[in-house]
Design a protein around this nucleic acid. Structure first.
Lengths: 295, 295
DNA sequence: CAGTAATCTGAAGGAAAATTTCACCTTCCG
DNA sequence: CGGAAGGTGAAATTTTCCTTCAGATTACTG
């Protein structure tokens, strides 16, 4: 069996005594800086070690590879392993003086964490109940302001695409005005991270009183909004820092919940959802510039 | 910067749409069996994919390597990483009959994957350049329609909160009207997954012609939108399925990029950003119901 | 629906890298 | 000090990789 990259360092030590002086120089360079050597051609490595190409090839053979080409591949593998092992687990808060690469890494990790947390904490039964209500709803109204307003729009937009009657309301006055028209069989969704946003609670309460099925997507299942919600979907919150306020991570969490609702609804209305999706795609085709030619 | 092995799978997905048929076959083989392909020579891989050596080399170039030799090295690295247990869990597509718990889990995993891919593939230098331009900008205009419209609003909203002059335009007419007013020192940002959305490209082009600094956030760095962009920030694309169209995963990716931009700007304008953030928080306090007692 | 212009594709030739060969050099024993 | 055995690298050879170019394909245009 050809030696894997892991065994390389050991192999070098084992074989070293039986090597000639110039071969040892090559082996040493290879064991000492796999990543660097992986970049070099035979000629390059020969030059770097002050030897000849023939010696490099001979050393490769001695280490168990058919030639330098394969040693080089193993070297690249080893380098990759080392790098991934030494992956700096950046879990600290984002600081004012963090360099951009760290910012990108930390943000991505934080959001991944938020997603994992949300998925783990999400009450599937509540999601299913919410989906069931939406599927048979005459219309769906979604309330959200500020950062949650965008999530609210996202949900409405998605539902519209699969042929449902959905609206997103950011204007609290209009939201209440609409909520008054709600009746049993309709669905109202309120999205608020704090669970205490009056502009969102108010229309939900009205819809609730009208007999509509109400759903709350909130980070505070004990918040006031829950009082008027038939189904509460809890979003989780990541650590917040000064530069990354809670509003930022709650958005990720809320979007995941919204996506789950959407997929659930789309699954249960697949017969109509699928054609509606393609139709909306087709309708937008002419809003795109022509594809590059010859394809 | 040459892409590391980690980013390869993401890169393949990102670039796949802009590839020709035979190049896609090569990319697919490479992404599907890195270990196996690492063993093959150009000729071998060409044969295995039923294409020519030239096509293999062309594909390697498109993926960001100087030639096949270097792609092969990266492949060896990737294979080694996967073998060592860091293998990315390949999740199945979401099916119509998936039970809700599976849907939640798959969605969360997909989005996490998208985040990791985006972070790995994001060109930090471009981000820094974009941030620098925004920091010193007189005003920032953001263009986005459809699903990208929400991301566009998110960016504008965030920038407003730290005291910058930012606007999001979804109406293409108003967007162009505003773009005409742009001048050197202003910044225009276009957000489009396809890179071909005319309603977004048009205002960006106008702003570009006016001498403004232009930024594109797109999944297609070779798309038309890139022609008028000083800085291109590439979002990566997850596998898409019928129930989860590309538009859905692109949102996650775009939001991460937007967050990076925001944090970058906030860092560099910390003196004014921090007070502005707390001020906007304070101003909204009375829109919340009183906190529950004893907390 | 045909013309046309652009792009895609692979075969063949040219460049580069890897491997082998071979003559020279060192070293060590007799 | 002579000679043999192995170490070493320059040059030749082979393999691999890359570039060029002409034909095939495709998608737009009138």
């Amino acid at each position: 069996m050809r030696p894997g990259p892991t065994a390389l360092a050991a192999k070098v030590r084992t074989m070293a005594p039986s090597m000639t002086r110039s071969m040892q120089r090559v082996a040493e360079a290879v064991a000492g800086d796999p990543a660097g050597c992986a970049q070099l051609t035979v000629t390059g490595l020969a030059e770097r070690t002050g030897t000849s190409e023939a010696t490099v090839v001979r050393t490769s053979r001695l280490l168990g590879y058919p030639g330098y080409r394969d040693l080089r591949l193993a070297l690249a593998g080893l380098a990759a392993q080392q790098e991934s092992g030494a992956a700096p687990a950046v879990t600290a808060d984002i600081a004012v003086d963090d360099p951009m690469p760290d910012v990108v890494a930390k943000l991505a990790l934080d959001e991944q964490q938020t997603l994992a947390d949300t998925a783990a904490a999400l009450d599937v039964a509540q999601v299913e109940a919410a989906v069931a209500a939406m599927v048979s709803a005459r219309r769906v109204d979604v309330y959200g302001v500020g950062a949650s307003g965008l999530v609210s729009q996202d949900l409405a937009q998605k539902l519209l695409r699969i042929g449902m009657v959905a609206h997103s309301h950011a204007d609290p006055h209009l939201a209440v005005t609409n909520a008054v028209q709600m009746q049993a069989g309709d669905v109202a969704v309120a999205i608020t991270h704090s669970g205490r946003t009056v502009d969102v609670i108010e229309p939900l309460r009205v819809a609730f009183d009208q007999g509509a099925t109400t759903i709350a997507i909130t980070g505070r299942p004990d918040g006031e909004v829950a009082q008027y919600a038939d189904h509460v979907l809890t979003t989780s919150t990541a650590r917040e820092s000064e530069l990354r306020p809670a509003a930022m991570s709650s958005r990720t969490s809320q979007l995941l919940v919204v996506d789950c609702l959407f997929i659930g609804v789309a699954q249960r209305t697949y017969e109509t959802a699928a054609p509606a999706l393609s139709a909306s795609y087709e309708a937008l085709a002419h809003r795109h510039s022509p594809r590059p030619r010859g394809r």
